[in-house]
């Protein structure tokens, strides 16, 4: 066993081939997307639970700091997706490892080729936003302040997981809590190994579709433009109806309401889409987080247990809040609250 610091520094010092760097990138990009996902699902659930907070959250997303983060996020998702595909393919046919170095290079090239047009389009949304005469930008202090509850939440969750782990270790008999005498097969790990690969492949169309809607076809800036169409929702002729495919109030809440209330053949397709994305990404992401955390905490059974509890807690919280919001109905009152909050957002 090597200390955590040594493991990390030596990972960078060892002269491995491209495969080592692919793994480092896969790990960092995966963790980056999980971090974003936590903020994102909780924020999004506010569209239903706390419309005023959602308005604020979207203003935060439109701030320069988050715009930079958004470019990084898209790069992370694209790289992780392509590289995950490489991993899954070679796992399926181990003899293809002979092409892995080339495949790793193709992953980098494909990522770059995808990102160039995507970044150009994303940048055009940014430009359009800053060129509009009435552009208003949330100050950096407000942006940082808005993230404090999340940081506090992470710290509290960490302590709760540690406490829970310490308690279980104290209650459980030594034999059950300590290391096993002999290694034995784990059906659960078998399941997770397959799940990571299968879910990864299923996530690709979902998350690429989601990002195409939110970054390429429209940008996060288009969510708050009054009178704008809403991506994925056709405009109905009825100007008097609230849900007509036009974000009349120009609030982020109405934007989400338009999408979630849109019915295609009687099915709220965007809710179904978001639910599938939510479940796959959350479970994949938190199991990935468990892989990473248990790798680095294997030297201490209590820390390792805490890491597992933390991942379970995180996944459950996200699934409950995310599904809770998807089951709710955004109505006229919510839009009115959002309108009021939008008016107050930049008021001195």
């Amino acid at each position: 066993m090597t200390s955590l610091v040594l493991t990390l520094t030596e990972t960078l010092r060892y002269k491995g081939a491209l495969g080592q760097w692919s793994w480092v990138l896969h790990r960092i990009t995966g963790l980056g997307v999980v971090l974003f996902l936590v903020l994102h699902v909780i924020d999004t659930s506010w569209a239903y639970f706390y419309p005023e907070l959602y308005v604020k959250a979207i203003a935060v997303y439109q701030s320069p700091l988050f715009t930079i983060g958004e470019f990084a996020l898209v790069a992370c998702v694209v790289y992780h997706a392509y590289n995950g595909l490489r991993i899954a393919l070679i796992d399926f046919k181990p003899v293809w490892w002979r092409h892995q170095e080339k495949a790793a290079r193709y992953v980098l090239i494909a990522t770059a080729v995808t990102l160039v047009p995507v970044f150009v389009l994303m940048f055009s949304h940014v430009l359009k936003h800053y060129q509009s005469p009435d552009v208003q930008v949330l100050g950096l202090d407000a942006v940082v302040e808005s993230q404090i509850p999340f940081i506090a939440g992470f710290v509290i969750a960490g302590f709760a997981a540690l406490l829970l782990s310490a308690i279980t270790m104290a209650i459980l008999p030594k034999s059950a809590a300590g290391p096993k005498a002999k290694p034995t097969g784990s059906q659960i790990e078998r399941f997770w190994w397959s799940f990571m690969r299968l879910s990864g492949v299923l996530i690709i169309p979902l998350v690429f579709g989601h990002l195409a809607a939110m970054h390429v076809l429209q940008g996060v800036f288009d969510m708050t433009v009054a009178g704008m169409t809403v991506v994925g929702v056709p405009v109905s002729g009825d100007a008097t109806a609230l849900w007509n495919g036009i974000n009349a109030s120009g609030t982020a809440v109405e934007f989400v309401g338009e999408r979630w209330n849109h019915l295609l053949g009687g099915v709220a397709i965007w809710r179904v889409f978001d639910a599938a994305l939510l479940m796959l990404v959350t479970i994949h992401g938190f199991n990935g987080l468990r892989y990473v955390l248990t790798d680095y905490t294997s030297f201490n059974p209590m820390l390792k247990r805490a890491a597992i509890y933390l991942c379970i807690m995180g996944a459950v919280v996200l699934l409950v809040t995310g599904i809770g919001a998807l089951l709710g109905t955004i109505d006229q009152t919510a839009v009115d609250m959002a309108k009021e909050a939008t008016a107050k957002l930049f008021a001195p």
Binding site: M1, T2, L4, L6, T7, E10, T11, Y14, Q20, W23, P179, T294, D295, Y296, S298, F299
Partner: peptide
């Protein structure tokens, strides 16, 4: 790197 991090591997 997995073995460096986790000697139980």
């Amino acid at each position: 790197p997995s073995f460096w991090a986790n000697g139980k591997y």
